[in-house]
């Protein structure tokens, strides 16, 4: 199932099922940390990142994959990241959140995802591509021996390891150890969730590894998948792995919601919620298109590479999220 449509679909179904079961919403994870003093979902996400940090490195060392850190364009990751972070508050979920909530029957999620796909496609390959280009060209590191990294003409996107000439294994182990120390030696909020955060995190991390093996060029992502689903449906372009992965997420989430009796067509009563979904979807899509990834591509899949681009984008996802939450909900 390497690189095939069916591979993408199977990985997507597994991921969608897990997202629904584990309530894996990064919009909530970022917000809860600051405004609700609740670190349950945050720890769940970091657990997945710790598993993937070691997992990706081990897979690359065994020659199963090559590491593909995301392109580093500082202005794009700062501006796009902040826009994405603001958008997810209005849209009522991050890129993966709105995708899996479609499978739960959420009408505002369908609206947000549609506008997300449109503006992401416009920023990456459509009418807003010129604007995206203004953020600059990728900054790369030239490596004589790329080793575990996939290089183009000896050039690799910067990571903590290759930027400072460190052994990627050492960096990965130190980083994972810091995360694990934080996870298990700090207080965790209590919650009656269907699955413990540590177990959920490990399972998401394993699906991330399976995704990397299956797609080969990267682990899990959302933005590229939505762009592909729309362009392949409306033009002659073919469907690809990541388009099928996003489609699979919706199916997997629906299966989980149906089994556990959580599926329902849900309409908010407040008209404002629909307006927020449109604006939030547009902001998120544009931001992810510019930044080169969303909370999955950059945060969940990118941080385990210790890619500078993903670390910078993630910081601005979180700052944008906190800023918009404060603006909309936090001031009184």
């Amino acid at each position: 199932m390497q690189g095939t449509l069916i591979g993408g679909l199977i990985v997507g179904i597994l991921f969608g099922f897990l997202l629904q079961r584990t309530r894996m919403c990064f919009n909530s994870a970022f917000r809860d940390l600051r405004y609700f003093k609740d670190n349950w979902l945050w720890k769940q996400g970091l657990m997945a990142i710790a598993v993937e940090t070691i997992g990706f490195q081990a897979m690359a060392a065994m020659g199963v994959i090559k590491l593909h850190p995301s392109a580093f364009i500082p202005a794009a990751q700062i501006v796009g990241g902040f826009a994405f972070g603001m958008g997810m508050v209005l849209a009522g979920g991050c890129a993966s959140g709105v995708t899996y909530r479609i499978g739960e029957g959420n009408v505002t999620a369908i609206i947000a995802a549609t506008f997300y796909a449109i503006s992401a496609a416009a920023a990456r390959a459509g009418k807003l591509k010129g604007l995206t280009g203004l953020f600059g060209k990728p900054i790369t590191v030239t490596m004589t021996n790329p080793g575990v990294y996939a290089a183009q003409d000896g050039k690799v996107a910067p990571t903590v390891a290759n930027l400072f000439g460190l052994n990627p294994w050492v960096v990965s182990i130190v980083f994972a150890a810091i995360i694990l120390a934080y996870l298990f030696f700090t207080k965790t909020s209590q919650r009656k969730a269907p699955m413990h955060w540590a177990i959920a995190g490990v399972l998401v991390g394993l699906v991330g590894m399976l995704a990397y093996w299956s797609q080969q060029t990267y682990s899990l992502g959302i933005t590229g998948g939505w762009i592909n689903l729309f362009t392949a449906t409306m033009t002659e372009a073919p469907y690809n792995w990541i388009g099928m992965e996003v489609f699979g997420i919706i199916i997997g989430s629906f299966i989980s919601a149906a089994i556990f009796k959580e599926f329902k067509i849900r309409f908010p009563k407040d008209p404002k919620s629909y307006v927020f979904a449109v604006i939030g979807g547009l902001l998120m899509g544009w931001g992810a298109g510019v930044a080169g990834g969303c909370n999955i591509g950059h945060f969940l899949s990118g941080i385990p590479h210790l890619a500078i681009s993903s670390i910078l984008a993630s910081i601005f996802f979180i700052l944008g999220n906190w800023f918009m939450y404060w603006l909309v909900y936090g001031r009184n």
Partner: peptide, 17 residues
């Protein structure tokens, strides 16, 4: 508070408010 159809954080925030 009728929060049907809304997703987080709206139901939590409105409940706390």
């Amino acid at each position: 508070l009728d929060m049907r159809g809304e997703v987080c954080p709206v139901p939590d925030v409105e409940t706390r408010r």
